[in-house]
Design a protein around this nucleic acid. Structure first.
Length: 217
DNA sequence: GGTATGCAAATAAGG
DNA sequence: GCCTTATTTGCATAC
């Protein structure tokens, strides 16, 4: 079919934050170049100057408390993050992965996300504890439900597909609808998936070149 | 084998 | 419908 090309040399969007300074200069500020990075709950909560309530009126202290408790209660039920994630995907409400549970427990998420996730976890955990009281078997039934779900599963492109997409991108970063349809057909991916790929690719390209502007020569 | 995390796919919102 | 920009979230894999 198609011989795999050596490498299009499309430099990966590695976020290089230039901190390497000539030995003499001692930088008092850690790393000020963060383009619009929304801070996580844990970052905010560990900052004494910010109160317990953030700009959007989210009670960070309450979330921190709940997250801590959630973990304790989850472990008491003998459940893993993976199990909780799977169970959440089964019950109604949004689906979440093990990563999401992990990030919530660590508060490695924005206050907004935490605020959204908290009631979902709260409700689920209460239900799980109730089931557990009725017997271990009951809990396991509750945990192991059917998949189904809202958010589209993340597509994993094959290395060959990425290579091909990058090749198209280098020729034309903004393909027309018709072109997208053809590329999708050619590579055998959903048209929408391909369209979003181009959007994301343009975005990362733009962001990385923005970052480069700040790099010390 | 459970948890943490980097990268990037998917989504939200505004135009 | 499609774009951009900002953000959320999950797969894959390192720890």
């Amino acid at each position: 079919m198609q011989p795999i090309q050596p490498a299009p040399a499309v430099s990966q969007p590695s976020v290089v934050i230039a901190t390497s300074t000539p030995a003499t200069m001692s930088a008092p500020v850690p790393v000020p170049i963060t383009c619009a990075d929304t801070p996580t709950v844990s970052q905010l909560v560990s900052k004494p100057q910010t109160g317990v309530v953030d700009e959007d009126g989210i009670n960070l202290e309450e979330i921190r408390e709940f997250a801590k408790n959630f973990k304790i209660r989850r472990l008491s039920l003998g459940l893993t993050q993976t199990q909780v994630g799977q169970a959440l995907t089964a019950t109604e409400g949004p689906a979440y992965s093990q990563s999401a549970i992990c990030r919530f427990e660590k508060l490695d998420i924005t206050p907004k996300s935490a605020q959204k996730l908290k009631p979902v976890l709260e409700k689920w955990l209460n239900e799980a504890e109730l089931r557990n009281q009725e017997g271990q078997q009951n809990l396991m039934e509750f945990v192991g439900g059917e998949p189904s779900k809202k958010r589209k599963r993340r597509t994993s492109f094959t290395p060959q597909a990425i290579e091909a997409l990058n090749a198209y991108f280098e020729k034309n970063a903004l393909p027309t609808g018709q072109e997208i349809t053809e590329i999708a057909k050619e590579l055998n991916y959903d048209r929408e998936v391909v369209r979003v790929w181009f959007c994301n690719r343009r975005q990362t390209l733009k962001n990385t070149s923005k970052l480069n502007v700040f790099q010390i020569p």
